[in-house]
Design a protein around this nucleic acid. Structure first.
Lengths: 117, 117
DNA sequence: GCAATATATGAACATCTGTTCATTTGTACG
DNA sequence: CGTACAAATGAACAGATGTTCATATATTGC
């Protein structure tokens, strides 16, 4: 818990700090947002999500497309499921995964713009 | 290097896998995208960026707004600088930070939509 | 029920990440 | 020049993260 001890006197823009502090969303929202972005912040998951942008795929397909073990894919899918980024339907023994949400496509689009500019 | 050994026979949708594989962006793009999202995937950095959406602020202000040590803020700012998410200008001893890019606001907007729906 | 198969899950481990503490750099001003 | 102060940097450490390996579910077809 850092308090405004020495710095408040000569350096801080007090009104600004107060204003921003008020506008700043709560700890929980910041945490949720960070959690979401963190989920997108892994090459494997980026590839999984991008793959699912084309069409729904089973775990086995994803394994082949991305080139890592089925277990690794499954673990990542669990994370993406928990955050409601992907959903799945069962067809016999096979589970078909797809994007749960069209926000992801927009997020990727924005992200790509930043990266490739 | 996992090959399509046993699964290709009875489970994989071969054409789909090939197609997606072709469409899938390269290792480097995936890595860049992941790096960007990972940078956004930390509560402290989320707060920093959100704070800077309102107006430019000095490191000292950010310390007060967010309530963590100046060193911690500085370390995070370095990460954000490296990824061209924030920029700064010097005025005497004080460095004023601001957003480098309007993509961030859009990314946050999309992210918030997903989180708060 | 049992073998086969697709996927999920748990434990373990090495690596990466964020913070703290100590030190340094850069700038202003007497 | 030397002190003061904003900010940056480096080392170190605890905690989180992603993969692997081994094992467990769930479903199908015999």
């Amino acid at each position: 818990m850092v308090e405004l001890d020495k710095c408040e006197i000569n350096c801080i823009h007090d009104e600004a700090v107060q204003a921003v502090r008020q506008a700043l969303f709560g700890e929980d929202v910041a945490a949720s947002l960070a959690e979401l972005f963190k989920a997108l912040g892994d090459p494997t998951r980026v590839k999984i999500l991008f793959s699912l942008m084309t069409r729904e795929l089973c775990v086995c397909d994803l394994t082949a497309v991305i080139g890592i073990s089925e277990s690794a894919v499954s673990h990542q899918l669990k994370i993406l499921r928990t955050l409601r980024l992907v959903k799945f339907r069962r067809e016999g023994k096979v589970l078909y995964y797809s994007l749960d949400d069209d926000h992801i496509e927009k997020l990727f689009a924005q992200g790509l713009e930043h990266v490739t500019e």
